[in-house]
Amino acid sequence: MQNYENTNRARRYRAYVSPLGTTQIHLRNPYIIAWWSAAFPGFGHLLLSKYLRGFLLFIWEIVINVNSKLNVSMVYTFGGQFDMAKEVLEPRWLLLYIPVYIYGIWDSYRTSVDLNKVFILSERENSDFINFQITSLEINYLDKRKPWVAAMWSFFMPGTGQLYIHRIVVAAFIVTWAVVIVYYSHFLQAVHYLVLGDIGYANDIVNKEWLMFLPSVYFFSMYDAYVNTVENNKLFDNEQSNFLKKKYQDRNFRLPLNPEKRDR
């Protein structure tokens, strides 16, 4: 009977494959992670697979931003209406926004640097990890997929690219909030009237406060789906390479013979 090593005893391992997704650590550029946190708090942490922290900061951004009227103020600022931009701001909420916003950028940068160090150590240790999970609800396994396909599906609907690479939790979160943002921004209604040629009504009906959340969600979903597909493909190659080296590269390995031919 084959003896399977308990991979949970490894000091560090690169990935964890569960029914809800594949979580792995890999080298990241800390400045890119910090930039995504600056673009939208929580996104940098989601890229690092720090899901609870990322979800918390994302929801915090929505709540504080809407109540402080920050996006509305930015719209007036872009239009050169600086007096209106100052007038609509809610200082009680805005002063809560600043410290947590800066913390999100700093913490995502710091965590990215730390995880890069952990990845280097785990790569040297090169411990085995379980690459296949099957339960009564889901099946997840390592395989190779096309990054451009993941980005394309996220372009059509944020979160579907994450579903393509089996990141169920992140996909559910992004899809839910994409629907909420599209609904409250009246984005699809505006597109409908824009196609009909009624540009003025399309401009009037759109809620610019919620609409400004949409580009960040769209581009993050595409970037996250693309990058994680690339890294999952690398992880698949690494796991397959380790398996072949351990099972088929031993000098004393003897090729199993067909019992019928061996008897002749």
Results as ranks from 00 to 15, higher is better:
residue 127 S to H: 08
residue 91 P to E: 02
residue 198 D to A: 05
residue 165 I to K: 02
residue 102 I to E: 06
residue 45 H to Q: 14
residue 188 L to F: 15
residue 60 W to N: 00
residue 36 W to N: 02
residue 57 L to C: 04
residue 163 L to G: 05
residue 40 F to M: 15
residue 109 Y to Q: 09
residue 263 D to K: 13
residue 144 K to Y: 10
residue 141 Y to M: 14
residue 57 L to Q: 00
residue 1 M to C: 07
residue 233 N to A: 07
residue 147 P to N: 05
residue 215 P to D: 13
residue 252 N to A: 09
residue 178 A to G: 08
residue 156 F to M: 15
residue 20 L to W: 12
residue 259 P to R: 10
residue 174 I to L: 08
residue 144 K to D: 11
residue 147 P to V: 07
residue 76 Y to R: 00
residue 80 G to T: 10
residue 136 S to T: 11
residue 158 P to S: 07
residue 222 M to S: 04
residue 79 G to S: 13
residue 242 N to C: 10
residue 41 P to H: 04
residue 93 W to I: 00
residue 56 L to P: 00
residue 209 E to N: 13
residue 125 E to I: 10
residue 238 N to V: 09
residue 179 V to T: 14
residue 228 N to T: 11
residue 257 L to E: 15
residue 196 L to H: 14
residue 263 D to N: 13
residue 183 Y to Q: 14
residue 58 F to G: 01
residue 187 F to Y: 11
residue 62 I to E: 04
residue 251 R to W: 09
residue 10 A to Q: 07
residue 142 L to A: 07
residue 157 M to C: 15
residue 175 V to P: 01
residue 154 S to W: 02
residue 164 Y to L: 09
residue 55 F to G: 03
residue 148 W to Q: 08
residue 30 P to C: 07
residue 220 F to T: 03
residue 217 V to C: 05
residue 5 E to P: 03
residue 46 L to E: 01
residue 14 R to S: 05
residue 80 G to R: 12
residue 40 F to R: 00
residue 121 L to H: 10
residue 229 T to F: 03
residue 256 P to L: 07
residue 224 D to R: 01
residue 181 I to C: 01
residue 120 I to V: 15
residue 111 T to P: 05
residue 245 K to R: 12
residue 128 D to G: 06
residue 228 N to F: 07
residue 146 K to G: 05
residue 68 S to M: 08
residue 208 K to A: 12
residue 55 F to S: 04
residue 103 Y to C: 13
residue 130 I to R: 03
residue 144 K to P: 08
residue 107 D to M: 06
residue 255 L to C: 12
residue 50 K to Q: 14
residue 43 F to E: 01
residue 197 G to Q: 09
residue 147 P to Y: 00
residue 22 T to E: 02
residue 212 M to E: 04
residue 67 N to E: 13
residue 254 R to Y: 13
residue 219 F to T: 04
residue 217 V to N: 03
